[in-house]
Write a protein that binds this DNA or RNA. Structure first.
Lengths: 216, 216
DNA sequence: AATGAACTCAAGCAACTGCTTGAGTACAAG
DNA sequence: CTTGTACTCAAGCAGTTGCTTGAGTTCATT
């Protein structure tokens, strides 16, 4: 019953082209944004012909949206996994560490992982068309963050906590896009965590008086 | 001795064209960035001919750099003025309010002021050529921030404080660029300050234990 | 009125954009 | 071997890009 694996070299080659185009598009999107991406540059980088884009994706825009959606999904999954793994009694520091975790890991890993983060960050500034399809996942990620955040930041109403979450996420996105990101990408995971997590935690907590752990 | 004012309508018209082009370029730069700006769109918006750009500025790139430099200078002056007006005994909240002041005022004012902020934020992601000329002013602004920040965040070394300053500035820039900026632009100055300043102050202070005002 | 500088304008150029086309290749199925 | 499908390729098209050009117009100076 040894089922012979269907090789079909043509389809394999097609898949390789598709993946190469998507990877090249992701990289270009990460470093130049949607406006700065050109068809020829993608195909040159992927070693493919310009017609391959139309053939496999329909258009340059569709290819970019596909790459963006892929990146967004990857990011949201990582973010949700990090928040879901938190215990309900997690400290603010732990919440902040989980919140910034995917970004920090991307800085350490570099390469494609970092390109994913940069692309996601760019999307946060210029939302593309296919955005709506991932709204549900996005909402869940926000609810997760609120759930673990609330007990750690008492006396601040929900609307304000949402705002702080968006501020913190925006800060991380900024770090990924700005030149400072290049510096962060050279740091060790420990250095990164030691510098970054307190700032995120502080942004969550605000400047309310009193020690952070002073709740009954 | 009534010195007759030199009208010279030709030079006046030229100056008006120059200003119009610079304003149009600023607006386009604010909403689309350097890659998304086209010659025709600027000249259409300014009611000028395409040749006017080459005549007055030499090239589209030169026009953009001129507009960017103008915006950067305006921003840095406002930031330095806000920090310089602080007393040496200012609280962390006051420091944060001064730090975020120019951005908040731009949100309230809208229009050209907000375009300046958005352009500055974009430059933070994609630094242009003429950047180096303003490095001195930038350094002074950073030193000002550190001076008033240090006494309010004891036990954190200078390098880390610089990092937090960059994080806070990045967060503000992000707010200016991302869709959330549109929401902030509809808020009152009081609302804005009540929501934003605590987050900035918190990012400065980090999650160190102990009440923020507990210094002798 | 004549001169010349400051400025504007329509037209057009080369380079680049995304995309299409028709021919050609590689390979599984019959 | 023949057929049909999946895929790649060079060439080229219409539209847009930044920029230049040479002929204007406007206006202070003389």
């Amino acid at each position: 019953m040894t089922r012979v694996e269907k090789t079909d070299l043509r389809r394999e080659a097609g898949q390789r082209t598709r993946d190469g185009l998507q990877a090249a598009a992701l990289e270009l999107l990460a470093q130049r944004g949607q406006e700065g991406v050109t068809l020829r540059e993608i195909t040159d980088r992927a070693g493919a012909n310009v017609a391959a884009v139309s053939y496999h994706f329909g258009s340059l825009k569709a290819l970019c949206e596909s790459a963006i959606e892929h990146a967004l999904e990857q990011y949201l999954d990582a973010q949700m996994a990090a928040l879901d793994s938190l215990s309900p009694t997690a400290t603010l520091h732990e919440v902040a560490a989980a919140f910034a975790g995917p970004m920090m890991r991307a800085f350490v890993a570099g390469g494609q992982d970092l390109a994913v983060m940069r692309t996601v960050a760019r999307v946060g500034i210029e939302p593309p068309q296919g955005w709506e399809r991932l709204t549900a996942k996005f909402d869940k990620s926000r609810r997760d963050a609120l759930r673990v955040l609330k007990p750690n930041v008492p006396g601040v109403d929900e609307e304000e906590l949402i705002f702080r979450t968006r501020c913190a996420a925006g800060m991380l996105n900024w770090l990924a896009l700005a030149p400072i990101g290049a510096e962060l990408a050279t740091m060790s995971a420990e250095q990164l965590e030691r510098q970054l997590v307190p700032v995120v935690a502080g942004a969550f907590r605000g400047d309310a008086a009193g020690p952070p752990a002073a709740r009954p």
